[in-house]
Amino acid sequence: MSFAGRFFAALPRHWAHYLAEAAGLAFFVTCAGLLTVLVEHPNSPLASYVPTAPLLRRAMLGGAMVLVIVSIVYSPWGKRSGAHINPAVTLAFWQLGKVSTPDAVWYVLAQMTGGIGAALLLRTVLGEWYAHPAVDFTVTQPKTTAMGPELAFLAEFGISFLLMLVLLMTLHSERFKKLTGWFLGGLLAVYITFESPLSGMSLNPARSLATALAADSYNGLWVYFAAPPLAMWLATVLFRRFYHGEDLDCAILAGCGPGTSSPFTAGEEPPHYPDE
């Protein structure tokens, strides 16, 4: 069967998984936007309780986003699709042969759609609150300095590389695979607290595209389309080259059981098999 045939044949079989990916990134973008408004907007109802130090405000936001990530990964919908909510993560699992090519394309399209829809909805509903300079649509952009884009690229590459290594190491561990979501949430909190001044802390091309469209500002967008996928690809290549531990069972961030099992009954597994 041609790729087009397999591509369209996958939709009726796995549409619920694609919908879960769209909903997952939409939820992430929505929570990031609302929490940023609450923490950063000067007229926020929490303004009197928020620390004045930027580092502490970012730490508050990072702590809250831990719960967002964990809720996505371990939700029934997150377990259904794998909770990738990031084209770079999906492409890494595709490279590992855990997601078929048609499913990977559908996943990326769904992630883009969910993120863009959420960002545009926030712009429509929140208006000035979302557009305020302190919030700035939660857009991710390099610093406006001579070496800003280069610095942002290196920062995004580094945090993406480390995130994928941690993800692969935990998912390959019988002891830690069920805790992968918590490890990722912890890393995200650290990144938001300490790395976000360098690049805006994206890790995610779909998330950056969504907020760029909402802000109608595309400065340095190439950084977020290039650095995370390249870094996660390299991390996956090196991991496969040097790691000889337990095999990766599936592309589900909540973890799977041993062998070829999954958290679902026969016929309901998230797509995690390579093309034949």
Rank of each mutant, 00 (worst) to 15 (best):
A215P: 11
L234D: 00
L126A: 03
A134S: 13
G200C: 01
W129Y: 03
G181I: 06
Y224G: 00
S160K: 07
A119C: 15
A206D: 05
F225I: 04
T140A: 15
R207Q: 06
W233V: 09
P149M: 05
K177A: 13
F239V: 04
L179K: 02
A226Y: 03
P228Y: 08
T144P: 09
E128V: 09
L213N: 08
P197D: 12
L209S: 09
A226E: 05
V139M: 11
A118K: 08
S208V: 11
W182D: 00
N219G: 14
V125S: 00
W222C: 08
T211A: 09
P133W: 10
F239C: 10
A235E: 04
F194E: 03
T138S: 13
L168C: 01
T140F: 13
T170N: 03
G200L: 04
A212C: 05
T138P: 03
L168D: 05
E174M: 14
A119I: 15
W233S: 15
S202H: 02
L121V: 05
W129N: 05
R175W: 10
S217R: 14
D216C: 09
F157A: 07
T193G: 04
M147K: 07
A210I: 07
F153D: 02
L126P: 01
F161Q: 01
T145P: 00
L168N: 06
P205Q: 04
A206G: 09
T138G: 03
F194D: 08
A235W: 01
L168Y: 14
Q141N: 01
S160Y: 10
P142I: 02
G181Y: 09
E174D: 14
W233G: 14
L221N: 06
M147F: 12
